[in-house]
Nucleic acid binder design. Structure first.
Ligand SMILES: [Mn+2]
Ligand SMILES: [Mn+2]
Ligand SMILES: [Zn+2]
Ligand SMILES: [Zn+2]
Lengths: 142, 142
DNA sequence: CAAGTTGTTTAGAATAATTCTAATTAGACA
DNA sequence: TGTCTAATTAGAATTATTCTAAACAACTTG
């Protein structure tokens, strides 16, 4: 009974399947990053944050790979990219319809469930163009 | 009757008064930039755009000054800064309540009058914090 | 399993928007 | 006009992000 054999845990299997289902090769780096991102609850995370978190967990991964993974995950619909503060963008593990509180002082984002906001009237897109999504951002001062 | 005396035009007087009213010294550079920004209709303008426009109008002004002016104008409420695309921020000459179409392909912004959007329900800010503003962005694909 | 193929990772350089520094210039106002 | 203070500027610095091209690893096929 070798100590080498590591049986993949439930969370690892889930993450691996998510990557495969998205058409992304489950590399060591992507698995580790996806685990950090998706292990528990929804989050809003910058590239730098994820990179530091990886370092903290002894996950050896380059910053370029963090950017690659975040963009690949976003392209496959596993993440949503949010640019609110021009200083850096956030990646949201919640890809469903929802909105945000933005705390101007701290730069934190907090989810607002879709049904908490009701938009009664919306103008038609000019020229009948297709709406890709509607973002509501409630900015909180201080 | 000297050709040197230049009587300030109506638009120049207006711009000068706006700067003074805001507590900003009406310098040659600020007057020229404010004229470009506020001369006609509302606009959404990046620093680079304004800088190039100034060059086109033979307004000799440094890029640092363009940034300084845009931030000073924003701090005094003459402009509103908008960060939608993480690649650069826009400055909006419309500082009243309104919302935006964002054309993902071109990066253009278009105003939506406040009364065209009706938000029936909004969650309370956590901890009774003060809402500084609510932004609605309708993203248009293609 | 052993290629062979293709996608991924990476260090480090490059890019680009923005900010900073420190020296010069120019409004304001007595 | 002279003094004071704020604004402008060139150019360097900063910072998030992207690019390059070489090494590597996952997948496929035989
Ligand atoms: Mn991005
Ligand atoms: Mn800014
Ligand atoms: Zn979210
Ligand atoms: Zn606007």
């Amino acid at each position: 009974m070798s100590m080498r054999q590591k049986k993949p845990s439930a969370i690892n299997v889930t993450v691996l399947e998510r990557l495969r289902a998205a058409g992304l090769r489950p590399t060591r780096q992507r698995l580790a990053l996806a685990k950090l991102l998706f292990a528990r609850g929804h989050r809003h995370c910058s590239a730098e944050q994820l990179f530091n978190e990886a370092k903290g967990h002894r996950v050896d991964v380059s910053l370029a790979t963090v950017y690659n993974a975040l963009h690949d995950f976003t392209a496959k619909g596993l993440l949503r990219e949010i640019s609110i503060d021009s200083s850096s963008s956030y990646f949201d593990t919640n890809t469903g319809n929802h909105h945000h509180f933005y705390f101007e002082r701290s730069g934190q984002l907090e989810d607002i469930a879709d049904d908490q906001v009701s938009i009664a009237a919306l103008p038609a897109a000019p020229g009948g163009a297709e709406i890709s999504r509607v973002d509501v951002i409630i900015r909180i001062r201080a």
